[in-house]
């Protein structure tokens, strides 16, 4: 009986949390993404989310591309499929690993930073101060972050795709003995526009998820430093889970026959 009661409490708490997120999403869309638009804030957030994430996303993509080339070469050699390295690296990076890894890295870096910043603003009454200065916090804080996330994540993923494929190319030509021209030709011949655009669509969705979760948890943090810490953790964990779930859903949707 206690088990059922505890299970019920957990389910109710989960449903209540989902309800709060849906209400926050409604406010973010209806208030945060309608005029007045704070262009200055959007550009500032694009710089923080996009430009400042370039090193971590670039390094992740480079090493992933290199490791992927090695794995495919070693695995493929069991059934004489070594020649597929360039094609599989390109497809794997553009369709899956580029958007997912960039999303997860940005969730860790930017999602946490948004939650910590807004959480601190909440507990130090800066969000209340915005309201008293006749400035809607959803328009000033939430809207610009979401717009910046949706715009910059596809750009970041586009760069990550290029760097990841380059990582595979360097390993393929320097360590695995592939001919440089043949590697590039195989990559270009077998890579379709759909492979790239599907990854960029995923990236836009992931940008939305990361910024929404960062804002939601930061906006609703309470209880001082501990509350801000909890909000930061929750923002990263919930973003990561939602990114992986959304990736599965989008893959099913975008590549269904």
């Amino acid at each position: 009986m206690n088990f059922l009661a505890n299970l019920g409490r957990v389910v109710l708490a989960l449903l209540a949390e989902i309800g709060r997120i849906v209400i926050f999403l409604k406010d973010a869309l209806l208030q945060g993404l309608t005029p007045t638009i704070y262009v200055r804030q959007i550009l500032e957030q694009m710089l923080r989310i996009g430009y400042n994430s370039l090193p971590v996303v670039g390094l992740t993509a480079f090493f992933t591309g290199g490791a992927l080339a090695l794995q495919i070469y070693l695995g493929g050699s069991r059934f004489n499929a070594e020649s597929l390295v360039s094609t599989i690296v390109a497809l794997g990076i553009t369709r899956e690993l580029g958007p997912v890894l960039a999303g997860l890295m940005v969730a860790g870096r930017v999602g946490a930073s948004i939650a910590a910043e807004l959480g601190t603003m909440r507990v130090t009454e800066q969000i209340d101060a915005l309201t008293t200065l006749a400035t809607n916090p959803f328009k000033y804080l939430v809207g610009p972050r979401i717009v910046a996330g949706v715009i910059t994540l596809p750009i970041l993923v586009g760069i990550a795709d290029t760097i990841g494929i380059m990582g595979g190319y360097i390993v393929g030509t320097r360590s695995l003995g592939f001919n440089s021209f043949a590697y590039i030709k195989n990559t270009v011949d077998f890579l379709h526009l759909d492979d790239v655009t599907s990854g960029l669509i995923k990236a836009a969705v992931f940008g939305f998820i990361i910024t929404l979760m960062g804002c939601y948890h930061g906006f609703n943090s309470k209880g001082g430093a501990q509350g801000v810490g909890r909000a930061t953790t929750n923002a990263v964990v919930s973003s990561a889970i939602l990114i992986l779930a959304a990736n599965f859903a989008l893959t099913s949707l975008l590549f269904s026959e």
């Binding site: 603003m121 130090t124 009454e125 800066q126 209340d128 101060a129 309201t131 008293t132 200065l133 006749a134 400035t135 809607n136």
Partner: peptide, 17 residues
């Protein structure tokens, strides 16, 4: 928002941005 233009408030911790 129009109504709030009539107000000023000093917060306990100043709440500066």
């Amino acid at each position: 928002d129009q109504f709030l233009l009539r107000f000023g408030m000093l917060f306990q911790g100043a709440a500066l941005f």
